[in-house]
Simulated assay, not measured.
Amino acid sequence: MKLELAREDFPLFADVTYMDSASISLTPVQVVEAVTDYDLHYRANVGRGVHRLAQIASLKYNEAHRKVAGFIDGGQGITAFVQNTTAAVNMVAAGFPWKRGDHVVTTLLEHHSNLLPWIRLREQGVLVTVVPPGPDGTISPASIEAAMTPATRLVAVTHASNALGTIVPIEQIAAICHAHGALLLVDGAQTVPHLPVSVQALDCDILCFSGHKMLGPTGTGVLWMKDIYIRPSVLGGGMVETATTNGFTPVQGYRQFEAGTPNISGAIGLSTAVSYLEEIGMAAVRVHEQTLTRRLVDGLRGLGGVTVYGPERAEDRIGVVSFTVDGVHPHDVAHILDEASGVLVRSGHHCCMPLMQALDAPDGTVRASLYLYNSIEDVDLLIATVEELERRQ
């Protein structure tokens, strides 16, 4: 019932059928109101003043950190607010104490944001291995094990593919990493919004995710670390305990990674988004999306001339379904879905060009990505429109 009522909180759904949440989710009115409340009633900087507005803003901002950390069971680590997942991954790549000959393992499933920062480390003499997925788009722990060497310092892997929806067995990979003395960085951009995530259960060392994919404002993201593994890559106001012309001492905790005035209203909005998701329950979100995903995958696979990519079982993927229609460019399919039925999907390479090349999909795919506000009727509308398009070919 909560999920059925939730749709009323997203006014955009009155005009379109939105299926592009893997790129950016819609935002409920509660989040918009929380952001506006800050701007209108207690707009002030945080950690820099003693007047009443600064005190209120700082209290709300600090509480947002506690709220988000609790959402991922990460209260024992460092939870820093950053711009997005891309910024978080780049902060680790830039701030880690690399030495020539160090080794990084990543996979071909990765979004460019969790691939290119590691590839560029080759310029510093860091060795990088990119593990390919199996034919069904899955990553086996054995393939990660085979890539490990005595020089492996870090493994960077997505929790779920933004292009195929594939869920990666993080817990097993974590055990492999720690057995080899390597850290595990997880890109959780596609899982934190859609299923219960506990950094303790995953046993990862670093988790990165974005607020704009989980009902929150744009320009919000999280870098969670079990311990402080990196040096701050951005220096300035708010991140120092002491500073002289001879050097500085960074402040303890997350603030050393948040130099300058942060996105205060965005953090408060993200905290509100977390509260919204907690009220519904992430287990309920997961069950709802599995039902929709199973119907969408089965419906598309039942059409001739349509190729669906990724795992066979809905249980092995999040609500992301990539497909192509024989003889029709993915952009044309997306345009027809919009014009004919008001169904909004993503088309192209999904910031995964190497993966698309490996899949022999040079033009990319059409990607429908679901969230808690989608319904069976939305899924059936997409299937019916694709069926009509395929029939006319």
Rank of each mutant, 00 (worst) to 15 (best):
S113R: 03
I72D: 01
A69L: 08
A87Q: 09
Y38D: 05
P117H: 09
V29K: 06
Q55N: 09
G70R: 11
S21P: 01
Y61I: 01
L59N: 11
N45L: 10
G49C: 14
T79H: 02
H103E: 09
A87C: 10
N90C: 06
I56N: 00
H51G: 11
T86I: 05
L109T: 03
S23M: 09
R43I: 02
H111P: 00
L109M: 11
K60E: 14
L109P: 01
N62H: 12
A14L: 11
F10W: 02
R52Y: 13
T86W: 01
V104Y: 01
V16F: 04
G75F: 09
K67T: 13
R122H: 03
H41R: 15
T17I: 03
G74H: 04
V92G: 01
G95Y: 09
G75M: 13
E110C: 14
E33S: 06
N90M: 01
L115A: 09
V130P: 02
K67A: 08
F96R: 06
G77Q: 04
G101T: 07
D39C: 05
L12Q: 15
Q83C: 14
P11C: 00
P28Q: 07
N45H: 06
A69E: 04
E110Q: 15
V29G: 03
F10I: 05
D39M: 07
W118I: 08
G125Q: 06
A80F: 06
D9R: 11
D37V: 05
G125A: 03
T17N: 07
D39H: 12
A69R: 02
F81G: 07
Y42D: 04
L40A: 14
I24M: 11
N90R: 04
P28N: 10
W118M: 13
